[in-house]
Simulated assay, not measured.
Amino acid sequence: MTGDRQDATDQAWPAHRRLVVMLSYRGANLLDVTGPVQAFETANRQALASGEWAAAPYETIVASEAGGPVLTGAGVAIATVPLAALDGRPIDTLIAPGGSPDGQIVAEPALSHWIARQAGQARRVCSVCTGTFLLAEAGLLEGLRVTTHWRWAQRLQAMYPGVRVDAEPIFIQEGAIWTSAGVTAGIDLALALAEADLGHRIALAAARDMVMFIKRPGGQSQFSVPLLAQQGSGLAQFAELHAWMAAHLHEDLRVERLAEQAGMTPRTFARAYAAAVGRTPAKTVECMRFEAACRALEASPAPLKRIAADTGHGTEQNLRRLFLRRLRVTPQQYRARFAPNHPMHA
Rank of each mutant, 00 (worst) to 15 (best):
P97M: 04
A119H: 08
H113T: 11
W114A: 12
L86V: 07
T132W: 06
W114E: 05
V81W: 06
Q121A: 15
T80P: 01
T147I: 07
Y160A: 10
V81P: 01
Q154K: 05
I170S: 13
Q118M: 12
P169H: 07
L134D: 09
T93D: 04
A119I: 05
E137A: 15
Y160D: 03
S127R: 12
Q154D: 14
L134A: 06
G103T: 01
G88F: 02
V128L: 11
D102E: 06
G98N: 10
V128G: 08
S127N: 14
V106H: 00
T130D: 09
R124Q: 13
S100E: 04
D87H: 10
G139F: 12
I95L: 15
V125Q: 07
T130S: 03
A153D: 07
L86K: 07
L71A: 14
W152I: 12
A167P: 15
A138V: 08
A153P: 12
G73Y: 10
A138C: 09
F171Q: 09
T147C: 06
H149A: 15
S100R: 11
T93E: 05
P90C: 07
V81F: 08
D166C: 10
I115C: 10
G143T: 00
Q118D: 04
V128R: 06
P161C: 01
L140G: 12
T148S: 11
I91N: 02
L86Q: 01
V128M: 07
A138W: 03
I78A: 02
I95P: 13
S100K: 09
L156C: 13
A77V: 05
V163M: 03
F133K: 11
E108Y: 03
T72M: 08
G162S: 06
A110H: 01
A79Q: 10
G68I: 12
T93I: 03
C126R: 13
Q118H: 07
G131M: 03
E137D: 15
T130G: 01
R164D: 03
E142Y: 01
G98M: 00
P97C: 09
T148W: 04
R89P: 00
A107I: 09
F133H: 12
V163N: 03
T93L: 11
V165A: 08
A138F: 05
F171P: 09
Q121D: 13
I95A: 11
G73H: 02
A153H: 11
W150P: 08
T132M: 04
Q104T: 09
L83W: 07
R89T: 06
A79N: 00
E168F: 04
F171K: 05
A119K: 03
G131H: 06
G143N: 00
A116W: 03
G120D: 11
A85D: 14
A110M: 00
V165D: 00
G131N: 02
S112A: 14
R145F: 02
